[in-house]
């Protein structure tokens, strides 16, 4: 025993290195399950508040762009108002109950930390559990899809950006109504990849990719990007399509968090179908 202790003491530098490295690896490995519960509460308070104050300072430099974007958003929404449409269908009845049938609820949030140069990028927002934010809500901005909420604290939340190797979003080539999977293979933060699109459909450069509406998270028809480069290797049954993201993920200011009010119901139903098998 004494010899073992003496041995460890002699090489204490190496053994301490092993202990710390293993500790770090355990932290990485358990991140998704454990960290969410314990570490978050301890660290969000500090990092969230500092990042929040700092983003308050730098947000002044981007007010102009932010205003332009919001004005554009307003115009688009105005055009969708029903009172702007001519009533050609005489059978239609004005729906007075505006709260009935609403499936998605939007919350405005500010981006207080963002990265695009890692393999797994995350975004921090200044809204959390107290504002009704929870896991698996969609995050979009005026231009398109941004990501998904992965963890929350009382006042802050982390978003898994689409620039993340774990991010998989169901996308659709809008013109053809064909489905695929949107992933990010690293590299440029401007370009994403659409896979699983069958090779028999005729995709063109410039086609828009939007959300499919088949997920329980994203609403239908939110822009994801436009096709830039089409790849089809000999013998492949699926395309690899590179596209430009609709949202500029490197200059995010304000974003919308989208809550699907029927998410729970939809998930329960799909679980039943799986159980049936």
């Amino acid at each position: 025993m004494r010899h073992i202790l003496a041995f460890i003491w002699k090489y204490n530098f190496f053994f301490l290195f092993l202990v710390l490295e293993v500790a770090a690896l355990i932290l990485i490995a358990n991140k998704s399950y454990y960290q969410a519960a314990v570490l978050n509460r301890a660290t969000y308070g500090v990092s969230g508040n500092i990042l929040n104050t700092w983003s308050g300072v730098i947000s002044y430099f981007r007010l102009r762009d932010e205003n332009l974007q919001l004005a554009g958003d307003n115009i688009r929404l105005r055009q969708q108002l029903t009172r702007n449409q001519s009533a050609t269908d005489t059978l239609s009845i004005a729906v007075m109950d505006t709260s009935g049938g609403i499936q998605y609820r939007y919350t405005l949030a500010k981006v207080i930390s963002n990265s695009t140069n890692r393999r797994d990028n995350y975004i921090m927002l200044n809204k959390g559990r107290k504002q009704g934010i929870s896991r698996d809500m969609a995050v979009i901005n005026a231009n398109g899809v941004v990501g998904t909420i992965v963890s929350t604290s009382d006042n802050f939340s982390w978003v898994m950006s689409v620039l993340n190797k774990h991010s998989k979003i169901s996308g659709r080539i809008n013109r053809l109504n064909q489905m695929g999977t949107v992933v990010w293979q690293g590299g440029s933060p401007m370009t994403g990849t659409l896979t699983d699109l069958p090779a028999h459909v005729k995709v063109k450069i410039g086609d828009t990719i939007t959300t499919s509406g088949f997920s329980h998270i994203f609403p239908d028809n939110i822009p994801i990007g436009t096709v830039r480069h089409i790849e089809l290797n000999k013998g492949d049954h699926f395309y690899t399509i590179h596209f430009k993201f609709a949202a500029d993920l490197n200059s995010l200011g304000m974003v919308y968090i989208v809550k699907n009010l029927y998410q729970h119901e939809q998930q329960e139903l799909s679980k039943q179908v799986i159980d049936e098998k």
Binding site: F17, A23, L27, I28, K31, L39, L51, R118
Partner: peptide, 17 residues
């Protein structure tokens, strides 16, 4: 601060080693 728990710690410990 970057939601990458353990990643930079592992790399820094190795650099120190």
């Amino acid at each position: 601060f970057s939601h990458s728990t353990g990643l930079h710690a592992a790399a820094s410990v190795f650099a120190a080693f």
